[in-house]
Protein backbone atom coordinates (compact mmCIF):
# COMPACT_ATOMS: atom_id res chain seq x y z
CA UNK A 1 0.00 0.00 0.00
CA UNK A 2 1.41 3.40 -0.87
CA UNK A 3 1.15 6.45 1.27
CA UNK A 4 0.41 9.77 -0.33
CA UNK A 5 1.40 13.04 1.28
CA UNK A 6 -0.03 16.42 0.40
CA UNK A 7 1.27 19.57 2.06
CA UNK A 8 -0.81 22.64 1.28
CA UNK A 9 -0.31 26.29 2.16
CA UNK A 10 -2.64 29.12 1.21
CA UNK A 11 -0.24 30.10 -1.57
CA UNK A 12 0.70 26.84 -3.17
CA UNK A 13 1.06 23.12 -3.00
CA UNK A 14 4.38 22.44 -1.33
CA UNK A 15 4.37 18.69 -1.65
CA UNK A 16 2.10 16.26 -3.40
CA UNK A 17 3.57 12.83 -3.97
CA UNK A 18 4.14 9.40 -2.60
CA UNK A 19 6.21 8.87 0.52
CA UNK A 20 7.27 5.88 2.59
CA UNK A 21 6.93 7.34 6.03
CA UNK A 22 6.60 10.67 7.77
CA UNK A 23 7.25 11.98 11.24
CA UNK A 24 4.97 14.82 12.15
CA UNK A 25 5.16 17.12 15.16
CA UNK A 26 1.67 17.55 16.50
CA UNK A 27 0.40 19.54 19.42
CA UNK A 28 0.69 16.45 21.59
CA UNK A 29 4.12 15.32 20.47
CA UNK A 30 5.69 13.70 17.46
CA UNK A 31 3.92 10.92 15.64
CA UNK A 32 5.24 8.63 12.95
CA UNK A 33 2.94 7.70 10.12
CA UNK A 34 3.41 4.53 8.08
CA UNK A 35 1.11 3.15 5.41
CA UNK A 36 -2.26 1.92 6.66
CA UNK A 37 -2.28 4.25 9.58
CA UNK A 38 -5.51 4.57 11.50
CA UNK A 39 -7.49 7.59 10.38
CA UNK A 40 -6.81 10.52 12.65
CA UNK A 41 -7.15 14.25 12.67
CA UNK A 42 -4.61 16.32 14.51
CA UNK A 43 -3.49 19.87 15.03
CA UNK A 44 0.04 20.46 13.77
CA UNK A 45 2.43 22.46 15.87
CA UNK A 46 5.20 24.73 14.68
CA UNK A 47 7.89 22.16 14.07
CA UNK A 48 9.66 20.03 11.56
CA UNK A 49 8.18 17.37 9.35
CA UNK A 50 10.42 14.49 8.35
CA UNK A 51 9.65 12.67 5.16
CA UNK A 52 11.19 9.38 4.09
CA UNK A 53 11.48 8.64 0.41
CA UNK A 54 12.93 5.17 0.02
CA UNK A 55 16.08 5.57 2.10
CA UNK A 56 16.37 9.29 2.02
CA UNK A 57 15.08 11.60 4.71
CA UNK A 58 13.85 15.07 3.91
CA UNK A 59 12.86 17.75 6.36
CA UNK A 60 10.38 20.53 6.11
CA UNK A 61 9.62 23.39 8.49
CA UNK A 62 5.89 23.66 9.20
CA UNK A 63 4.40 26.79 10.72
CA UNK A 64 1.40 25.37 12.48
CA UNK A 65 -1.84 24.06 11.11
CA UNK A 66 -3.75 20.89 10.78
CA UNK A 67 -3.32 17.37 9.43
CA UNK A 68 -5.73 14.67 8.45
CA UNK A 69 -4.65 11.09 7.91
CA UNK A 70 -6.77 8.33 6.49
CA UNK A 71 -7.09 6.00 3.53
CA UNK A 72 -3.32 6.19 3.11
CA UNK A 73 -3.80 9.82 2.28
CA UNK A 74 -2.17 12.49 4.42
CA UNK A 75 -3.34 16.06 4.01
CA UNK A 76 -1.42 18.69 5.91
CA UNK A 77 -2.81 22.21 5.90
CA UNK A 78 -0.40 24.79 7.26
CA UNK A 79 0.06 28.53 7.21
CA UNK A 80 3.50 28.21 5.77
CA UNK A 81 5.89 25.43 4.92
CA UNK A 82 9.46 25.47 3.73
CA UNK A 83 11.63 22.63 2.57
CA UNK A 84 14.82 22.36 4.55
CA UNK A 85 16.85 22.49 1.36
CA UNK A 86 15.21 25.78 0.35
CA UNK A 87 16.12 27.67 3.50
CA UNK A 88 19.17 29.87 3.45
CA UNK A 89 21.21 28.74 6.50
CA UNK A 90 22.79 32.14 7.15
CA UNK A 91 19.52 33.97 6.88
CA UNK A 92 17.78 31.48 9.16
CA UNK A 93 20.56 31.73 11.73
CA UNK A 94 20.36 35.50 11.70
CA UNK A 95 16.60 35.39 12.07
CA UNK A 96 17.03 33.09 15.06
CA UNK A 97 19.45 35.49 16.71
CA UNK A 98 17.12 38.42 16.10
CA UNK A 99 14.22 36.44 17.53
CA UNK A 100 16.24 35.58 20.64
CA UNK A 101 17.18 39.21 21.12
CA UNK A 102 13.57 40.25 20.70
CA UNK A 103 12.45 37.79 23.33
CA UNK A 104 14.94 39.19 25.81
CA UNK A 105 13.70 42.69 25.09
CA UNK A 106 10.02 41.79 25.16
CA UNK A 107 7.88 43.53 27.73
CA UNK A 108 4.40 42.62 28.69
CA UNK A 109 2.46 39.48 28.06
CA UNK A 110 1.44 40.05 24.48
CA UNK A 111 4.93 40.91 23.32
CA UNK A 112 6.37 37.90 25.09
CA UNK A 113 3.88 35.61 23.41
CA UNK A 114 4.62 37.08 20.02
CA UNK A 115 8.38 36.92 20.55
CA UNK A 116 8.10 33.34 21.71
CA UNK A 117 6.20 32.39 18.61
CA UNK A 118 8.72 34.11 16.39
CA UNK A 119 11.53 32.37 18.19
CA UNK A 120 9.92 28.98 17.74
CA UNK A 121 9.45 29.64 14.04
CA UNK A 122 13.05 30.70 13.64
CA UNK A 123 14.30 27.72 15.63
CA UNK A 124 12.27 25.33 13.54
CA UNK A 125 13.78 26.72 10.38
CA UNK A 126 17.30 26.28 11.72
CA UNK A 127 16.46 22.76 12.85
CA UNK A 128 15.11 21.92 9.42
CA UNK A 129 18.47 22.76 7.87
CA UNK A 130 20.58 21.01 10.45
CA UNK A 131 18.59 17.81 10.26
CA UNK A 132 19.79 17.34 6.70
CA UNK A 133 23.49 17.70 7.28
Amino acid sequence: MTLNLCVLTPNRIVWDSEVKEIILSTNSGQIGVLPNHAPIATAVDIGILRIRLNDQWLTMALMGGFARIGNNEITILVNDAEKGSDIDPQEAQQALEIAEANLRKAEGKRQTIEANLALRRARTRVEAINAIS
Binding site: T26, N27, S28, I31, A38, P39, I40, A41, T42, A43, R68, G70, N71
Partner: peptide, 8 residues
Protein backbone atom coordinates in the same frame (compact mmCIF):
# COMPACT_ATOMS: atom_id res chain seq x y z
CA UNK B 1 -13.26 6.75 7.23
CA UNK B 2 -16.09 7.30 9.66
CA UNK B 3 -13.90 6.22 12.52
CA UNK B 4 -11.70 9.28 12.37
CA UNK B 5 -9.93 9.71 15.63
CA UNK B 6 -9.01 13.01 17.12
CA UNK B 7 -5.50 13.19 18.35
CA UNK B 8 -6.35 16.14 20.55
Amino acid sequence: SPILQFEQ
